[in-house]
Design a protein around this nucleic acid. Structure first.
Length: 579
RNA sequence: GGCCCCGUCGUCUAGCCUGGUCCAGGACACGUCCCUUUCAAGGACGUAACACGGGUUCGAAUCCCGUCGGGGUCACCA
């Protein structure tokens, strides 16, 4: 098995399939991908990007999660050369061209066992028989005395033949690496040399009692066997690196190039995690309960179809269950913060906006635009060409949602009407099936008009859907904002209704039902009647047509609605309020 | 607490390696104004930062030391 020649660059992204793809993981994947894509070796070959699934935590891993992560990556436009195959939008991503698979670690246990045996035979590693609870107790004791706990190597005092015999007899045990006693320097492409003093590392576990390798061991073995040359990962792994280097030395492996990148934090400085959703949902519930004394856990349980114990557990922060959080979010009408790629998809973000924004968190191209400003807007293709490790930042960054929203709005604004319509529809098909049914039935020309009306007003596809509410209402009757009705239709002795009654025949007589013609008619009417501004006709019309004082331009709104619908809505309004 | 990393506008950052062109530039957010049929979008302008203290130097955001602050990590999770 010759996975690669030494000069062939290989990066990898190695998620564990215990949930959706986290925004931070997405950035890691993007940088690894971009680094491989932007590189050419001496023979002009591009680097390779590999995907590996780290499912050595048998209890928490699931195939479903793995599949979801693959899809999220594909959605972002990050494709991998080596790794599990995924059929996505008519093409296949991944495969095992280099014959380095399988890519699921749970399927590689024989390989790990082989190397473990080798280390044990060489006495570079040894079995240890303490139970987890024993060690926990010792750890707690040390912590109480404000000391750092390190494994005391007790197992080493068991005579070697006994150790091997007990191990072979099937007695539960872990295998620990004999950690090196000397100091160790890790070279990092982003941070420079990082020195760890002698004696800092303890004899860490490399195979668990259930027979699975630990993360450290599996990573080191796989990176070697899969020909990985460059490891780009988040700084939370920095302190794992000396362990990995120690393992590489014990096994006679080469050490890949490391680069650790800053961590993405919430605006308040906390780590971005699924728990943020629970926190937001809990706050919404507590605010509601504080405002309305009748709101109780029992009532909540009832209306969210949960049992009281679940509700109480969630309110008391004993559980951060995402499902409960989402039920609460829906119940109280609050949006939960997005932290996983799936969340952003559902909220109507564009992959290109996420890629652009997330790339800027910890990296920047260091280039200027033609008008002398810092270049900030770029796409994946640009990254695949221009990415470089030496421009990765060192400090953590905070995830500023308002800037992401701005990038997303810009990405939406950059779409043609045709593109917007198609992608918005695709989004609805996946996330809002009901809305999709209605919108997909619109005649194409009206759909494009709607796209044009929505684009500048929507920061996300979901927002676009909200602005398009008038499309989903029935001409025969729909909820109206009573404050707007009062202000624009009923005030001054129903002046607004009177204006509508007067204007309606004009509309009915129009030959050209285009946004421009409608706008022209509106302005002409206002001028003719000596209105101080077109608002006196525009606002009553708006309320009649959409039920709200806020909507896209009236020309577009009426064009989308069509002549018949528009007139019927005005008619109904006059009839109901006129008397 | 031990060890490790980091510290430029509220936020993302350019500049730092190779001191002077920086009384620090851009973007988002915010504010004011213009445009305007609502809401947006768009245009113009503005507020706002080198954490602090010592050095080195003719000169420091840039080099050195210390302090403070933030983060990570100390599992049979990854």
């Amino acid at each position: 098995m010759t996975p690669t020649t030494p000069d062939h660059l290989v990066t990898r992204f190695a998620p564990s399939p215990t949930g959706h793809l986290h925004i931070g993981g997405a950035r890691t994947a993007l940088f690894c991908w971009a680094f491989a894509r932007s590189h050419r070796d001496a023979r002009g070959r591009p680097g390779r990007f590999m995907l590996r699934i780290e499912d050595t935590d048998a209890a928490r891993s699931s195939d479903e999660s793995a599949r979801g992560i693959l899809e999220d990556l594909a959605w972002l436009g990050i494709d991998w050369d080596d790794g599990p195959s995924l059929h996505y939008q008519g093409r296949t991503i991944g495969g095992d061209e280099r014959h380095v698979g399988p890519f699921f670690q749970a399927q590689r246990r024989d390989t790990y066992d082989r190397y473990i045996r080798q280390l044990v035979e060489q006495e570079r590693a040894y079995p240890a028989f303490e139970r987890a609870e024993e060690l926990d107790a010792k750890r707690r004791e040390a912590t109480a005395k404000k000391q750092t706990y390190r494994y005391d190597r007790a197992a080493l005092s068991i005579p070697l033949p006994d150790r091997l015999r007990r191990m072979a007899s099937g007695e539960p045990h872990v295998v620990r690496l004999r950690a090196p006693d000397d100091a160790l320097v890790v070279h990092d492409e982003v941070l420079g040399d990082v020195t760890y003093a002698a004696g800092e590392m303890d004899d860490f576990v490399i195979r668990k009692a259930d027979g699975f390798p630990t993360y450290h061991f599996a990573v080191v073995v796989d990176d070697e066997l899969m020909g990985v040359t460059h490891v780009l990962r988040a700084q939370e792994h920095l302190n794992n690196t000396p362990r990995h280097v120690a393992l590489q030395r014990a096994l006679g492996f080469r050490t890949p190039v490391y680069g650790h990148m800053p961590i993405i934090m919430n605006m308040d400085g906390s780590k971005m995690s699924k728990r943020d959703k629970a926190r937001a949902a809990r706050k919404a519930a507590k605010d509601a309960m504080a405002k309305d004394p009748k709101m109780t856990a029992e009532l909540l349980a009832d209306s969210t179809a949960l049992d009281v114990a679940t509700v109480n557990g969630f309110l008391a922060a004993e559980s951060d269950a995402v499902e409960t959080a989402e039920l609460f979010g829906r119940h109280f009408g609050v949006a939960l913060p997005e932290v996983e790629i799936w969340d952003f998809r559902r909220s109507g973000y564009l992959p290109e906006a996420i890629v652009n924004f997330v790339a800027l968190l910890g990296w920047n191209p260091g280039m200027k635009t033609a008008d002398g400003k810092d270049l900030e807007k770029f796409d994946a293709a640009f990254l695949a060409e221009r990415f470089s490790m030496d421009r990765i930042g060192r400090g953590n960054s905070k995830f500023d949602r308002s800037k992401l929203l701005n990038f997303n709005a810009a990405a939406i604004g950059g779409l043609s009407d045709e593109q917007f319509a198609r992608r918005w529809l695709e989004w609805m098909l996946e996330h809002e099936a009901e809305a999709h049914r209605v919108v997909s039935k619109l005649p194409h020309d009206r759909l494009l008009l709607l796209a044009r009306a929505l684009k500048p007003r929507a920061k996300t596809f979901r927002e676009a859907l909200r602005s398009a509410a008038f499309v989903f209402t029935s001409d025969e009757g729909f909820p109206m904002d009573m404050a707007a009705v009062g202000k624009h239709l009923l005030a001054n002795d129903k002046a607004g209704v009177g204006v509508l009654r007067e204007f309606k025949p004009r509309l009915a007589a129009m030959a050209d039902w285009s946004p421009e013609a409608i706008t022209g008619a509106l302005e002409g009417f206002a001028k003719e009647k000596g209105m101080p501004n077109p608002g006196s006709i525009a606002q009553p019309l708006r309320v009649a047509l959409t039920g709200s004082g806020v909507s896209p331009g009236l020309g577009e709104t009426m064009a989308v609605l069509g002549r018949e619908s528009s007139l019927r809505r005005i008619e109904r309004c006059v009839a109901e309020l006129g008397a």
